[in-house]
Structure formats: structure tokens, C-alpha cells
Simulated assay, not measured.
Amino acid sequence: MKIDEAVNIINSTTTVRAKVDDGVMYVHEKLNSDDDWFMRVSLYHLGWSAITADFDTCLDDDVDVMDLARVMDVIQRLLDTPVKERFPEKKYVLSAMRCAEGPFAIKQYVDAININTNNVEFHFGLANETANAMEFTQEDLDSLSDFFPKAAIDAMKEEVKDNG
């Protein structure tokens, strides 16, 4: 289970909320401030030793028992996920400044790669449009180094923001 998925499930409950800050997930009552967490989960550790709980002080009767059960289920599923798989994998697009409209350079994004026995070529989409741009993982980009210099790929790559 990915961290953002766990937060979304917990935040879909009516009486409990979760947030992530600096590698730690804080779980608190919906109506209490973020500082009044009743459970803190270190996202870089395995097992229940990653959990710090303060049920006596910060957990009121206002928390629905079904919401609390859901939180415990989500936390267990998160702890069962290897640490590396909890974090969303970064995605990238490739872009280049091209003289496609007369003497003016415009930014275009790669929307296809054609590979055949004789050559490899990028196909660029419309100017400044990322909607149809191909997305790559770092592993995908590393495999392109069989065809293109790594420095060229690194110069073209841009991280896709707001990955889900």
C-alpha cells in the first residue's frame, strides 16, 4: 500500500484524519488539532515498532469504533508493504526547445518514441502541451541510455508534479 493511499482511506472516515510530515504519518481525531495525534507511524520502518501511540491522552470517545478499526487495518496493510513500495515512484517527461515555428524556439514534449533496426527517434507533440506526453520512470530513462547519451536524457527530463 502506498502512503498517499493509506492517508486517503483514513481521511475518508468521519471521525479520524491522517497527515504526513517529514516521513511520519500522524493520525488524530477529526475535530482535534494536528498536534493532538493519538498514533504516529514512522514510514521508513517496518513492524509495529514503527508506531508510537498516545491513546490515553488524545483519543476521545468521539472516535467511531469502526473508524478506529479501519485505521488499524490500514496501518497493518501499510506495515506489511515493503518500505520502498510505500512511496510513489517518480515519473518524468522529456522535453526539448525546438525551432518548430520559424525562428522562435518552443518547448515541446515527447509523446512517442519510434525504435526500429536503423534508428531511434523522438516524436514531439504540440507546443507547451503535456497532456499527451509520455511518462517515464527513472528505470525507463536509464534504459534509453542504450540509444542516447545519459547526459542528453538528463537534460531533457522534467519531473511530473502531483503524481498520484
Rank of each mutant, 00 (worst) to 15 (best):
E85F: 12
D54K: 01
V74S: 09
N114G: 09
R40H: 10
D34L: 12
A133I: 03
K161I: 15
I106M: 03
P149N: 13
C58D: 04
D22V: 09
I106F: 06
D73F: 12
C99N: 13
M39F: 10
V110E: 07
Q108F: 02
Y109A: 06
K91S: 04
D146V: 08
A151S: 13
E89S: 03
E89P: 05
D36K: 15
T13F: 07
N114E: 09
V27Q: 08
F38D: 07
I9V: 13
K91G: 07
D36Q: 14
R40C: 14
D60F: 12
T57R: 08
S95C: 12
R77C: 06
K150W: 10
V74W: 03
A105P: 04
A50H: 02
I51F: 03
H45Q: 15
P88R: 02
S12Y: 00
Q108W: 06
D61P: 00
N128Y: 15
Q108A: 14
H123N: 14
A127E: 08
L126M: 11
K90F: 06
M97N: 10
E85I: 06
F87H: 10
M72E: 09
D54I: 08
M66Q: 13
A131V: 11
P82C: 12
V74D: 08
F147E: 08
D36F: 14
E121C: 13
D22H: 03
V20K: 01
C99V: 08
E5M: 02
L94G: 02
A6C: 05
V160R: 01
D111W: 08
M1E: 00
P82W: 07
V7R: 07
S33H: 11
Q138W: 09
Q76R: 13
N118Y: 11
K161Q: 09
S49T: 10
F136L: 03
D111L: 03
V20Q: 07
D61A: 11
D35C: 00
D140Q: 02
T52L: 01
M134K: 15
F147Y: 15
L31N: 05
V74L: 10
A69Y: 11
P103D: 00
T15L: 07
D36I: 13
L94M: 10
L43R: 11
T117F: 05
G23H: 12
K161S: 01
T52Q: 05
D54Q: 00
E89N: 01
C99F: 11
F55K: 07
Y109H: 02
P149S: 11
N128F: 15
D60N: 14
G23R: 10
L126F: 13
D162M: 08
T117N: 04
E121K: 12
N32L: 04
D35H: 12
V74P: 08
